[in-house]
Design a protein around this nucleic acid. Structure first.
Lengths: 214, 214
DNA sequence: AACAGGTCACGAAGGTCA
DNA sequence: TGACCTTCGTGACCTGTT
């Protein structure tokens, strides 16, 4: 029972909400975020009380130095924070993944069945651009004309565009696909249909597209 | 006896449950899944302890690099993992099998018990509507016989039908395309609508993929 | 029965923004 | 700073084939 209670309280500040195992210790969300942000920083922290501050939910934000010290004391491990290069790679992979999906969607709606999976080496880097800005412009057009942004739904597309600045190879491909796009239905025909949620109406869209009727 | 005990423990992590010969070594289910997922990946794994982590049930998830190393060390073989193309083919075959069964169900519902179709090419056909006695009628029949409306669940299908009324040419076209694509169970999947769950929409995806449209 | 792959809820990382 | 979110790896459980 003692252990159970322990596991339900943040070992750093005593918080009782959102407790989980973070960086090898049971902590709350805020101490987790604090440790992630602070532990790797090299700048010297300063404590006004000679490093003897008590850390609880109320005081935890008053002295970062003592809070961080307690984090280490209760066993939070710095080596469980992913390295910046690791994170960079992950972000890159995520972007490529989204890109691929975007291209698939475009292919589907333009009826372009020539989209081949033969691209075996997915971990490859995109070639650098020579400053082709018109591809970006084209993408802007495409975003503007094909996305219903009434609910911020094209935000991810914008992110991808931003991240891809200077990667004209794939942008050229996008432009080609985009040109084939006769019409629009990217953002769901039956969205507000009573009872059918977004996922389902998306499936219906796909079925209709599969028939090549619309 | 020693050997028997050995065979009842995962050679990677020492787990004692669900042991079997997996990829040429005696392992638990989780190490099997881990090896299947990880062994073929090309991305570089990183170990914080210079590749000297001890792997047991508690620690196995902490360092993928050392876990994978141990997998190889105890003799798990990467060539026992099926290739992606192999898996693709298998999935394709499974889908065709399922579609065949669905087509049979379909035939049963449409009262098309006579197997002597004049079209000899595929063996499985959409029930032919005589003349243009109205595709809508056919659809009505089909809806009536395949939808469980005990909870108003076929309402969406009916609405779709209504939207298509007066567009019998489109309906005919859909049927023709459907014949060509050998996709019947479009609405069959929606029949069980009670909220389309994840599994079901997954089926729809599979069917679409099976048509080679995308 | 044995052994491949598939599924999905869940835990624990990082990211975002008021 | 911290509440909330997304993403991805994990492992128990499942399906299908031999």
């Amino acid at each position: 029972m003692d252990v159970k209670v322990k596991e339900r309280l943040c070992q750093v500040c005593g918080e009782s909400k959102q407790i989980g195992r973070n960086f090898c210790a049971f902590t709350c969300e805020s101490c987790k975020a604090f440790f992630r942000r602070t532990a790797l920083k090299t700048i010297q922290l300063h404590c006004a009380s000679n490093g003897k501050c008590e850390i609880n939910v109320q005081t935890r934000r008053l002295c970062p130095k003592c809070r961080l010290k307690k984090c280490f004391d209760i066993g939070m491990r710095i080596d469980f924070i992913r390295s910046e290069t690791d994170n960079k790679i992950r972000r890159q992979l995520m972007i490529e993944k989204k890109m691929k999906k975007l291209l698939q969607d475009m292919s589907a709606y333009s009826g372009d069945s020539s989209d081949n999976d033969s691209n075996a080496n997915s971990g490859q880097e995109f070639p650098e651009s020579d400053g082709n800005s018109s591809a970006i412009d084209d993408m802007d057009d495409w975003i503007e004309h094909t996305c219903d942004d009434s609910q911020g739904s094209s935000r991810q597309v914008m992110d991808i565009k931003y991240c891809l600045s200077g990667k004209s190879d794939i942008l050229t491909e996008i432009r080609q696909k985009a040109q084939k796009l006769a019409v629009i239905p990217m953002c769901k025909t039956l969205t507000d249909y009573n009872g059918i949620n977004q996922l389902e109406s998306r499936r219906i869209d796909e079925l209709l597209v599969a028939t090549n009727v619309f």
